Computed example of a mutant assay.
Amino acid sequence: MTVAARLAAHPAPAPHADLLAAAVETALDCSQACTACADACLSEADVEDMRRCVSTDLTCADVCAATARVLSRQSTPLEDVARALLVACVAACSACGDECAQHAGHHEHCRLCAEACRRCADACRALLEVLA
C-alpha cells in the first residue's frame, strides 16, 4: 500500500492530497537514506572526515521523520506547525544534501542521500506553496 492510498483512506482526506502524499513519502525515504548514510559514514576508513556528515545526516533523519509523522495526521491539522516543520525539513534537507554532495564522488551512500534530500526538499517546498 502506498502513502497516497493510506492518506486517501482517511474519512476526511486533506486538500492537496497528491502534494501531501509526496511530502510524506519523500520525508520517510529521506529519513531512511540519512540514517543509512550516517551508519555507512561511521564504517568508512576516513571516519574522522565524516563527522559533520554523520551529524547532518542524523539531524535531517530526525526532522524528516517528525515531518512525515505530523503531516500524516489529518484529523486535526495544525497548519502553523505543519508549515514550520516543512520549512525546517527544507532547511535540514538542503544542509544535508549539500554536505553529502561534497562526499558523493567518493561515497555512493552520500550520493544517494544527497539525491533523497533534494527530492524531499522539493516536495516540501511544493506543499508549502499551496499551504501559504
Rank of each mutant, 00 (worst) to 15 (best):
C124H: 05
S43Q: 13
T2E: 14
A88S: 15
A95I: 10
E99F: 02
T26L: 05
S75D: 14
A8H: 05
E108D: 13
H16K: 00
C41W: 03
A23E: 09
T35G: 11
D62Q: 11
V63E: 00
G105F: 07
L112P: 05
A23P: 07
A61L: 01
A82K: 11
E48V: 13
A27E: 06
C96W: 12
A114H: 11
S94W: 10
C41H: 13
L19R: 10
R6E: 10
R73G: 08
L42C: 14
P13E: 10
S75W: 10
C100M: 08
A9W: 06
R125F: 02
A82L: 13
R83P: 01
A8E: 09
R83I: 15
Q102D: 14
A40W: 09
T76Q: 09
Q74L: 13
P77H: 05
L127M: 00
D80Q: 14
L131N: 08
L86K: 05
A116W: 12
Q102M: 13
G105M: 02
D57T: 01
S55D: 12
L19Q: 12
A123I: 02
S72V: 03
L112E: 12
A123Q: 02
A38D: 01
L127V: 01
C89S: 12
V3K: 04
C100F: 09
A132V: 12
L78Q: 11
R83K: 15
D46N: 13
M50W: 03
C34I: 03
H109P: 03
A23S: 14
C100K: 00
C93K: 02
H103T: 00
R6V: 15
A88E: 13
L20M: 09
V70T: 12
T2I: 06
R73Q: 15
L131F: 06
T67S: 08
E129S: 05
C41L: 12
C117K: 10
L58W: 04
A38R: 09
M1R: 13
G97S: 10
L127K: 00
C41K: 09
M1K: 15
L19N: 07
L127R: 05
T59M: 10
C117S: 10
A4D: 04
A8F: 04
E99K: 08
D80P: 03
S43G: 15
R6H: 12
R6T: 04
D57G: 02
A91P: 03
A65F: 12
S55I: 12
H109T: 01
C30D: 06
A45Y: 09
R125V: 02
C113R: 10
R83Q: 11
D80L: 11
R52V: 11
C53Q: 08
R111Q: 11
T59W: 03
L19H: 09
A38Q: 07
A123D: 04
A91M: 05
A104K: 01
G105R: 04
C110Q: 01
C60W: 00
C60G: 01
